[in-house]
Simulated scan of single mutants.
Amino acid sequence: MNSRRVLITGASKGIGHALAVRLAEAGHRPVGMARTAPADFPGEFHTVDLADRAATATALDDVLSGGAVDAVVNNVALVRPGMLGSVDLDHLVDVYDVNVRVAVQVTQAALPAMTAQGWGRIINVTSMVTVGKSDRTSYGAAKAALEFCSRAWAGELATTGVTVNSVAPGPTETELFRGINPPGSAGEARYLSGVPMGRFGRPSEMAAAIFFLLSEEAGFISGQTLRVDGGGSVAVA
């Protein structure tokens, strides 16, 4: 097995941290980026506010000074809920910036080494809400943009050995999700009602899906969105 160096944004907790643990257990080398370093990250970690474009560029220089990155997982997210009539335009810009600009900036930095070696993986972590969800104009539109990026980049890179895919989690037991939908809240009940399996996903389940798409065995899969949502996207459809 080749040991791959995998850069993960938003890696301090939730899905990103669970993925880092899984990668390390399999002999790979996770590299995390987030505002706060966890005490137990199983690899190299770079503390950076990804909402700051210049700071992100500096952190990426530091990452690449340690060697090439073989794969990128664009996992960092920002959510600003709001029905159409109450969407704050500054929040809209902020959400697009963290969800889309960061993914483009990070991927651009890592891409030259991946294409040079003829192997690479890019995973954009999106969301079940891209199939339709009220109160999520900013977030849903930004994540839908990432799903477009996966399709477009897959076409651009099809002959390079670099694959690009999205993983779209359903409601997952993360700090981000619970911060908006605490136990016993109306939000929790609303989300549960939309998941046919009747439970929330676990970060480890999302990490498993991403881990597969990062693998050698997934080399003929590109431009796809894998929905890991307990049947929620089917229920919406």
Results as ranks from 00 to 15, higher is better:
97 D>F: 05
97 D>E: 13
97 D>S: 15
97 D>K: 08
100 V>S: 03
100 V>M: 00
102 V>H: 02
102 V>A: 06
104 V>K: 06
105 Q>W: 00
105 Q>H: 06
105 Q>M: 09
106 V>G: 09
106 V>W: 08
107 T>L: 02
108 Q>A: 14
109 A>V: 11
109 A>C: 04
110 A>P: 09
111 L>C: 04
111 L>Y: 03
111 L>W: 04
112 P>W: 07
114 M>A: 01
116 A>P: 00
116 A>F: 12
117 Q>C: 12
117 Q>P: 13
117 Q>G: 15
118 G>K: 13
118 G>W: 08
120 G>D: 05
121 R>H: 10
122 I>L: 05
124 N>V: 05
124 N>R: 04
125 V>M: 06
126 T>Q: 12
126 T>W: 00
127 S>G: 06
128 M>D: 10
131 V>M: 14
131 V>Y: 12
131 V>C: 09
132 G>L: 05
132 G>K: 12
133 K>N: 14
135 D>M: 11
136 R>V: 13
136 R>W: 10
137 T>K: 02
138 S>A: 15
139 Y>N: 06
140 G>H: 12
141 A>S: 15
141 A>D: 12
141 A>G: 07
142 A>S: 15
144 A>G: 14
144 A>Y: 02
145 A>Q: 09
145 A>L: 04
146 L>M: 14
147 E>N: 04
147 E>S: 00
150 S>A: 14
150 S>L: 00
151 R>T: 09
152 A>M: 09
153 W>K: 01
153 W>Y: 10
153 W>S: 01
154 A>Q: 05
154 A>V: 04
154 A>F: 02
155 G>N: 13
155 G>M: 13
156 E>K: 01
156 E>T: 10
156 E>C: 01
157 L>T: 07
157 L>Y: 05
159 T>R: 12
159 T>C: 14
160 T>S: 15
160 T>V: 02
161 G>D: 02
164 V>M: 03
164 V>A: 03
164 V>R: 00
164 V>T: 04
164 V>S: 02
166 S>F: 00
166 S>A: 14
167 V>L: 09
167 V>H: 11
167 V>P: 07
167 V>D: 05
168 A>Q: 07
169 P>Q: 13
170 G>D: 11
170 G>W: 12
171 P>W: 10
172 T>W: 06
173 E>W: 08
173 E>T: 08
173 E>D: 14
173 E>I: 13
173 E>G: 00
174 T>G: 04
174 T>K: 06
175 E>W: 01
175 E>R: 09
176 L>W: 13
177 F>Q: 11
177 F>R: 13
178 R>W: 10
179 G>L: 01
181 N>C: 08
182 P>L: 08
182 P>G: 04
182 P>K: 14
183 P>R: 07
183 P>K: 04
183 P>C: 11
185 S>M: 03
187 G>P: 01
187 G>Q: 11
188 E>H: 02
188 E>G: 07
188 E>T: 03
188 E>R: 05
189 A>L: 10
190 R>V: 00
190 R>Q: 00
191 Y>K: 11
191 Y>G: 06
191 Y>L: 14
192 L>F: 12
195 V>F: 08
195 V>P: 07
196 P>R: 11
196 P>S: 07
198 G>K: 12
198 G>T: 03
199 R>F: 11
199 R>D: 12
199 R>Y: 09
200 F>Y: 07
200 F>V: 10
200 F>N: 08
201 G>D: 06
204 S>A: 15
204 S>V: 15
